[in-house]
């Protein structure tokens, strides 16, 4: 953008107040967190200024090794392989059909399977890497489910012919997007609670009451529920931007509907899928309210771990180490996914 002729001296005055405010609240505390992770915990919160690597050692090597039998290892293996197949097969088929590298699709499935296996195995350890793995796996599930739910919806909205209908349907997506996360999470908690409306309905139909709350199901459902609009909106933008004539062209050249979908539609909306998935994943993996209100336990996901260390456990250095590691992973994955796709400009 060209600068106004007399502009040189103005940009600093415009920039400085806001930039220093944000630096003070985001940059300096981030540096401080790294410093804290190298200090000694103080009883009752805070730190003692003695440098040590204890916190980092605990993050990577801790764990109350309880009973891990062959059964656990076996089921972990089975789950890992299943998860690998579930992700790799469709990914590979797609990669092959569009002539893209199959290795990346396979690797992606492999990493997912490995995470699922570690997650299962680490369930017996109850250590920090287990919390990390669980957070990532649950968030990936939420991302996949959001994609599946959002795709037909955005296609349906964008194929409405009246402008009014389109806008109404979009606003209907944006209202929950705009509503307090706390209220939305509470709504799910209320619905699923042991004496809640869902269980009453189940009972009145002659079935037994189920425990929904404090299960993996409840947490993943909550993640999907709170993050779904973040998938729908970018995906919708991508579908609206896309060139409909290319879909017609594929049909014109003899492609069946499924082929049109996988070979032309999906590649066309890929930027939207990437932005949406990134947003859902990043939002989910750092979720605090959902695992707290729907998961019940103390160490469900990373955010609970942080809350615990900065709250009841009063081990600030350990919490700082977890936070630093988590930020690093988040920033790295954002950089890897968004940074490589130059057409994606989040900012």
């Amino acid at each position: 953008m060209s600068a106004p002729a007399a502009g040189k001296k103005y940009h600093r005055r415009l920039l400085l107040p806001g930039l220093s405010w944000i630096s003070l609240t985001y940059v300096i505390p981030s540096i401080l967190i790294v410093v804290y992770s190298l200090l000694t915990p103080q009883l009752g919160g805070g730190v003692v200024w003695d440098f040590t690597l204890d916190a980092w050692a605990e993050v990577f090597a801790s764990g109350s090794r309880s009973n891990i039998g062959w059964q656990t290892v076996g089921t972990a293996l089975v789950f890992g392989i299943l998860a690998t197949l579930v992700v790799s097969i469709p990914a590979t088929v797609w990669a092959r059909s569009v002539g893209r590298s199959e290795h990346r699709a396979l690797a992606f499935g492999g990493v997912f399977g490995l995470l699922v296996a570690v997650n299962h195995l680490a369930g017996g350890y109850n250590n920090y890497s287990a919390v990390f793995a669980r957070s990532v796996v649950w968030s990936l599930w939420a991302t996949v489910i959001c994609v599946v739910l959002a795709l037909p919806l955005v296609v349906f909205i964008s194929s409405r012919e009246s402008r009014v209908a389109k806008n109404a349907l979009l606003v209907a997506v944006m209202i929950p997007f705009w509503t307090s996360m706390l209220v939305r999470t509470f709504a799910i908690r209320f619905l699923l609670s042991n004496t809640g409306p869902l269980n009453n309905m189940i009972e009145s139909l002659g079935f037994e009451r189920q425990v929904f709350l404090n299960t993996r199901f409840a947490v993943v459902l909550g993640l999907v529920y709170t993050a779904l609009p973040f998938m729908i909106l970018p995906l919708y933008a991508a579908v609206e931007r896309s060139d409909r004539a290319q879909l017609d062209a594929a049909r014109d050249l003899g492609a069946r509907p499924l082929r049109v979908f996988t070979e032309v539609f999906l590649p066309m909306v890929k930027p939207g899928l990437i932005v949406g998935s990134t947003m859902v994943f990043v939002l989910s993996v750092a979720q605090y309210l959902v695992p707290t209100l729907l998961g019940g336990g103390k160490t469900n996901m990373i955010a609970n771990l942080l809350d615990l260390q900065f709250g009841e456990a009063f081990n600030w250095p350990l919490g700082a180490a977890v936070a630093a590691l988590f930020s690093l992973v988040t920033i790295l994955s954002l950089y890897l996914v968004v940074g490589r796709n130059e057409e994606l400009d989040l900012a």
Binding site: Y26, S30, I33, Y36, F326, S327
Partner: peptide
């Protein structure tokens, strides 16, 4: 882009 929970604990420390 920063995860809220990380911001929260960082600000607490700060």
């Amino acid at each position: 882009i920063a995860p809220e929970i990380v911001t929260g604990v960082s600000l607490l420390a700060f």
